[in-house]
């Protein structure tokens, strides 16, 4: 089982309490009606599908209830960092260095 650090609870807790919620930092377009079908399709469905560090959302569903963001390596399943929703995307190179 994965252990996930919740940035709100400030505890590292069993994965069972959490729900995965897709790729992070995908902002909903301010004016959907101004977009082409292709752009709208890309917003809805096209994801980076990263091999390696992946920015993703999680929710501490059976806990504090909060959504937050994480960087998880999709190869090793290792969490490099978790951070509160609304905080900027952390710098990947410094995360990788810290992990090594």
């Amino acid at each position: 089982m994965l252990l996930v650090h919740c940035p709100y609870c400030e505890e590292t807790l069993p994965e069972l309490e959490f729900a995965y919620a897709g790729e992070a930092h995908i902002a909903r377009p301010a004016e959907p009606s101004a977009m082409s079908d292709e752009e709208w399709r890309d917003y809805l469905f096209i994801r980076s599908n990263a091999r390696g560090p992946h920015f993703e959302r999680w929710r501490h569903l059976h806990g504090c209830g909060r959504f937050f963001n994480a960087v998880r390596d999709t190869v090793t399943d290792r969490f490099l960092i978790t951070y509160k929703a609304g905080e900027p995307r952390p710098d990947l190179s410094s995360l990788k260095e810290a992990a090594e």
């Binding site: 089982m1 505890e11 807790l13 069993p14 069972l16 309490e17 569903l61 059976h62 806990g63 504090c64 209830g65």
Partner: peptide, 22 residues
């Protein structure tokens, strides 16, 4: 309950799971 109960101190509480139920 998947939690480490030793880390919930006396006089505290948490929302968690019990066999799938919140």
């Amino acid at each position: 309950c998947p939690r480490d109960l030793d880390r919930i101190a006396e006089g505290e509480g948490r929302r968690t799971l019990m066999d799938g139920a919140t």
